[in-house]
């Protein structure tokens, strides 16, 4: 017993030292963070080819992969993409179109979102840009989790198929602050279960929770919006964030809140260089 307590205390002491050291270290750049995270996963999950991280837990489990291949015979998001294309082409209240709000008419640009907007000093996600476009042209914003917003986003993502994420943190202290805040949201423990996003999606990536294979954070945003069998329909990244918050017994934050947008900014930056694979499907 004594030796166990002594061991416990030793662990505690060592941890305290490393904690102090970690906090005292200087901040890392977004690029250093991305390289460190991608290197960590390469070490943790050596069997996964870099581009395969975009398929999430499917890349880690042969049984899941078989299920996924079956699902992808008739992708469950096809209807959403078609519906989203229709919506995208319809005029808004003042006669303008979504295409007028985006670079390149909104085609092939998914990989550049989220973006930092120098005018507002805020992070703009694809979904928040779609809703901002609607409001600017006299329409009401769409509900954030599913339905038409997920459909338009699905269509826009489909036009970026194969393009690689290229999210920028411009040389602006506000952009770096937003990125850092997203990093905090990712690494801060929350909820009664005391998990951070990283507790599961970094530390436990590839492990089983009950029968569920925990997906890595790397490539996680790539398939969104996504059809999840547990939902039985399409959902946005915000929907998944809120679901995760509920699972750790925290109160979800408002959709498209600054924290969620910053979290998406951080997460997507971490996936820079990986291909857009949205819309996607998860068994």
């Amino acid at each position: 017993m004594k030796s166990m307590i002594a061991a416990g205390l030793a662990v505690l002491a060592a941890a305290t030292v490393s904690m102090t050291a970690a906090v005292a270290e200087t901040a890392t750049t977004p690029e250093q963070d991305r390289v460190a995270l991608q290197r960590l996963y390469a070490g943790m999950l050596p069997g996964v080819k870099p581009d395969d991280f975009v398929t999430g837990s499917v890349a880690l489990d042969p049984a899941l992969r078989t299920q996924w291949e079956d699902i992808m015979q008739f992708p469950p998001f096809t209807f959403a993409v078609d519906h989203g294309k229709d919506l995208f082409q319809q005029p808004l209240a003042d006669g303008k179109h979504y295409a007028d709000c985006f670079d390149n008419g909104g085609v092939g640009i998914r990989q550049t979102y989220p973006r930092f907007d120098e005018k507002t000093g805020q992070v703009v996600t694809l979904e928040s840009a779609i809703n901002a476009c609607r409001v600017e042209h006299g329409d009401k914003p769409l509900a954030p989790y599913r339905g038409d917003l997920a459909a338009i986003s699905a269509y826009m993502a489909s036009t970026s198929e194969g393009k690689r994420f290229d999210v920028k943190v411009p040389d602006d202290p506000r952009a770096l602050a937003a990125y850092e805040d997203g990093k905090r949201v990712f690494y801060a423990r929350r909820g009664q279960l005391n998990f951070s996003c990283a507790s599961c999606h970094v530390q436990l990536a590839g492990k089983h929770l009950r029968l569920q294979v925990v997906s890595p954070a790397l490539g996680m945003v790539s398939q969104f919006p996504i059809y999840r069998s547990t939902w039985g329909e399409m959902g946005t990244l915000d929907r998944r964030f809120s679901e995760c918050f509920e699972q750790v017994r925290a109160m979800p934050l408002p959709a498209q809140s600054e924290e969620y947008r910053n979290l998406e900014y951080f997460l997507t930056y971490m996936s820079n260089g990986l291909p857009v694979a949205g819309p996607g499907a998860q068994p």
């Binding site: 662990v11 505690l12 941890a15 009664q192 279960l193 530390q203 436990l204």
Partner: peptide
Amino acid sequence: YNPMTVMPTYGKNHA
């Protein structure tokens, strides 16, 4: 005992 643990703090958090 382990600051990086993923185990819930059952008592502390009244779970």
